[in-house]
């Protein structure tokens, strides 16, 4: 187990290295110049050239990468060009907000997605099953920005029961205010995941329910609730957890649009602005943080497998 963990951790290094090369080259090869964007229309061409020189943008790409990667290894993510502040603390501050949003979305997706999936399997081929799967299909099909804006129009502007944007009221607020502000973005972000989880849970459960050991359990007189919630769910959970792990990654990355719609001060929103301004250090730092969390989530999912199914061994 320990060896396995060490091996997996060692594997993350080349992955992160590859990601860093990919992000770096994609950004630098894309058209657009940070100096142009930063200086704005009132700058002289000489000022733009000076700034390019200062930012080291005139050096060969490989030298720029080397310098950046060398500093990253030492924990120095550089300074944001736009915010004129160290990247890492700023990225972590926003990442914390993204995690709050993701956690909210995940809670919604797990409770509603898995819950509805189980019930749909239990009441297979009933009206409930069909209705649930229809709603799930709609959930998968609706893009986040549409759901988000529709939610604002209905609940914030129409019924005026929920705030339209931000994490807290403008004048400040407590945990309770945070929850009010979280509700719409979390549901918007979690809707697609909930729908996917509902469908996956249902099919995984249906598959398990048809197996011999379930028939045996029923024959032994185990109550139907126990059969569904204990025997079947535990065995279906490998599939569910795999998909769930992937969904966490999706939620972290997918928060970009939700954060923009609801002005949620997270990493996604920060990254969009950084990309628009070609703020290379911020984008690169942000992507690395997201990539790292993705890698660790996958690792965690693999470890959970063993706990769910003791037959799985790591070597």
């Amino acid at each position: 187990m320990r060896n396995y963990l060490l091996k997996r951790l060692a594997q993350t290094i080349p992955v992160l290295f590859g990601i860093s090369i990919l992000v770096f080259s994609m950004l630098h090869l894309a058209p657009g110049d940070p100096a142009d964007l930063l200086l704005g229309p009132d700058a002289t061409p000489e000022a733009v050239e000076d700034l390019r020189e200062d930012m080291g943008l005139n050096r060969p790409l490989i030298v720029q990468y080397g310098a950046w990667a060398g500093r990253i290894v030492q924990g120095d993510f550089g300074r944001s060009v736009v915010l004129n502040r160290a990247v890492l603390p700023e990225v972590m501050k926003r990442f914390k907000n993204t995690l709050i949003l993701t956690a909210g979305a995940l809670a919604f997706a797990v409770v509603f997605g898995i819950g509805i999936g189980i019930l749909a399997a239990k009441f297979h081929q009933t009206v409930f099953d069909s209705a649930a799967m229809l709603v799930a299909l709609a959930g998968i099909s609706m893009p986040t920005f549409f759901t988000g804006i529709a939610a604002i129009l209905i609940f914030a502007m129409g019924f005026q029961v929920l705030p339209s944007s931000g994490m807290y009221p403008a004048r400040g607020g407590d945990f309770f205010d945070l929850m009010r502000h979280l509700l719409m973005p979390a549901v918007t972000l979690g809707a697609v995941s909930a729908a996917i989880l509902a469908r996956i849970t249902r099919s995984a459960m249906l598959e398990v329910i048809q197996q011999d050991f379930i028939r045996t359990a029923r024959a032994k007189g185990v109550s139907e609730d126990k059969v569904v919630w204990i025997h079947a769910l535990r065995n279906a959970s490998i599939t569910i957890v795999t998909v769930l792990g992937m969904q966490i990654g999706y939620l972290l990355g997918g928060s970009v649009i939700t954060e923009a719609v609801f002005s949620w001060p997270g990493l996604g929103q920060m990254m969009v602005r950084a990309i628009q301004a070609r703020d290379y250090p911020t984008v690169q730092g942000g992507v690395l943080i997201i990539a790292m969390s993705f890698v660790f989530i996958n690792l965690a999912v693999d470890l959970i497998y063993a706990w769910l199914d003791p037959r799985i061994r790591y070597s």
Partner: peptide
């Protein structure tokens, strides 16, 4: 108090409900 609201519809909503 300055608050950033990126989405125009959300800005409009915040104004009509008195948030801003």
């Amino acid at each position: 108090i300055y608050v950033p609201i990126l989405e125009p519809v959300a800005r409009l909503s915040a104004l009509t409900t008195g948030e801003i």
